[in-house]
Amino acid sequence: MSPSSRYQVDAAQSRIDPSVTTVLTQTVARLLLVPIFMVALAILVKGYADVGDGFSAGVVAALGVLLQDVAFGYRAIGRLTIVRLAPYGALAGALIALGVTFVPVLTGEPLLRHRPGAGEPVAHLGALELITPVLFDIGVFLVVFGFAVGVIGMIARMHPRPIGPSRGTGATGGDEG
C-alpha cells in the first residue's frame, strides 16, 4: 500500500462533515460575494488616497471567494472556474506589475518611472486617478488574489471524495491531469 493511498483512507474518515452547511449560509455567502468585491475594488482604487492598496484589496476579495468554502465545503469551491483560473490570474498580475516596472527601461528611462511624472497633471475618473501606479497596484491585487484563492483551491481539490456514491471530479493530487 503506497503512502498516499493509505493516507486517503485516513483523510476520508476525517473530512469535514458536509452536513454543517445549510441553505441559509449558502445563500448568505452568495449574497455577500458582490459587496465584498465592491469593498475590494474600493480599497484598491482608494489606495492612493486612504488606507489600503492592491495587497489588502486582493486579500479581501479572496476572503470573499473563500467565504463560499465555509458555505459549500472545500470540494465545491475547488470546482469554481474563478478558483481554477486564479493561479494564472496571479501570474498575469505579476506580468502586469513587471510591465509597469520595466517598460520605461525600453524607452531609456529608469525602471519603475511612473506616468504621469512628478507634478504633471493627472486625469481623473471619479475618485480614480489614471496613473501607472494604479496599474501596478492592479497587478499586485491580481497576484495576491490569485495566490490566496489558488492555494485554497489546491487544498480544496486535495480533499478526497466523500465516501459513498461520488459525483464530480474530486482529484487527489497524486495523479496527472
Binding site: T101, F102, V105, G108, P110
Partner: peptide
C-alpha cells in the same frame, strides 16, 4: 545597455515560463 535590462529579462522569463 541599461544595467536593468538583464534583470528585467530574467524576471519576465521567470514569470512567463511559470504559465507553462
Amino acid at each position: 545597455l541599461d544595467l536593468t535590462v538583464p534583470l528585467g529579462l530574467a524576471w519576465f522569463a521567470a514569470i512567463g515560463l511559470a504559465f507553462f
